[in-house]
Design a binder for these strands. Structure first.
Length: 307
DNA sequence: GGGCAGCGCAGGATGATTCA
DNA sequence: TGAATCATCCTGCGCTGCCC
């Protein structure tokens, strides 16, 4: 009886996985992707132009860094080869990657000179011949630099945008749904006692105690009745290879919580994108409640029944 | 030899903690 | 109290070993 119920559940979720995949494919319309790429590429060119102007076409890099640490993003991509934030901080210990954030902080002149020296050692000579010739760049040299490094910067940025956009939207959908249903949002804190989260209250991105390791972060913690907590992990996957690891993440946390909390915790996974049916089956076998972003009504129904 | 699964790392974001 | 630093998480990707 239990076996047939599980089998039926797996068939149902295999169908849902197919729907989720189709939703994902439709969301990746070529024209939308091309528009995204065009916007990010344009923004990258503007960043490069700003960095070139602020540094007087790389003649005075410290001046640009004193103006804003944000220009370092461009300078890192003019090195040969382009260098990551962490790698640059290794070769230039005085540089802090936080200064590169958008609207980044200004850098002191002596630090900027030190950073500029590290950049100068790694500057791509073929891309910036005018610096060595001690002259202003030709228009075609600036154009070449723009067309060479703008795609490098844009490629990183669009990946980050696509990664975070889907995940943020997924979590926002849940918190909005809960708020609309009258659930109370609690400030994030360490959940280490049984009654820490009352019924019809929830926390977003909070830490949840385990028995064997340090507390594990949970995307959404929902207080159900009888002091049971629904620990919900939100997972977006863009391909089936990735869904293996995402499901492994959920199972690892689920086991850590179950060991510590026993029947006082239920783990749930809210899935979106391309998830292999076999991975969904692994969640079901482990007793994880599975929901889908394209069908939040199922989740609503579940929490209405259990809260 | 090809396909698959698992592992570990990259690069970035962000929360937590420490320090001046 | 704000800045700096540390720790952890996220998704994507490449490598490696195993199995058929």
């Amino acid at each position: 009886m239990v076996t047939s119920h599980l089998a039926a559940l797996k068939i149902y979720h295999a169908e849902q996985a197919e729907i989720a995949k189709n939703v994902y494919v439709q969301s990746r319309a070529p024209s939308d992707d091309a528009t995204d790429w065009s916007l990010v590429l344009r923004a990258a060119r503007k960043q490069i132009t700003a960095a070139l102007r602020a540094s007087m076409f790389l003649i005075d890099v410290p001046a640009a860094l004193v103006e804003s640490g944000e220009h370092m993003l461009v300078f890192r991509h003019i090195t040969a080869p382009p260098i990551s934030q962490d790698q640059f901080s290794l070769v230039c210990p005085g540089w802090r990657k936080a200064t590169e954030r958008p609207h980044g902080s200004r850098i002191k002149l002596d630090e900027a000179q030190f950073i500029a020296a590290a950049f100068e050692e790694r500057r791509s000579r073929p891309l910036t011949p005018w610096v060595d010739a001690e002259r202003r760049p030709l228009k075609r040299e600036v154009r070449r630099l723009l067309w060479t490094i703008a795609p490098l910067i844009a490629s990183q940025q669009i990946q980050t945008i696509q990664r975070t956009r889907a995940a943020s939207a997924q979590e926002r959908a849940i918190t909005t749904m809960l708020a609309n249903k009258g659930w109370m949002r609690e400030p994030s804190s360490l959940l280490d006692t049984r009654a820490a989260l009352p019924a019809r209250h929830f926390m977003h991105k909070t830490r949840y105690a385990t028995a064997t390791s340090s507390p594990q972060e949970v995307d959404i913690a929902l207080g159900l009745n009888s002091t049971v907590v629904l620990a919900m992990e939100c997972k977006v996957s863009n391909d089936q290879t990735n869904s293996v690891k995402r499901v492994n993440d959920v199972l690892k946390k689920s086991n850590a919580w179950k060991t510590h909390w026993g029947s006082f915790v239920k783990t749930a996974a809210l899935l979106q994108g391309v998830i292999a049916p076999k991975d969904v089956a692994r969640l079901i076998d482990d007793g994880v409640e599975v929901f889908w972003s394209h069908d939040l009504s199922s989740l609503e129904e579940f929490i209405d029944t259990h809260s």
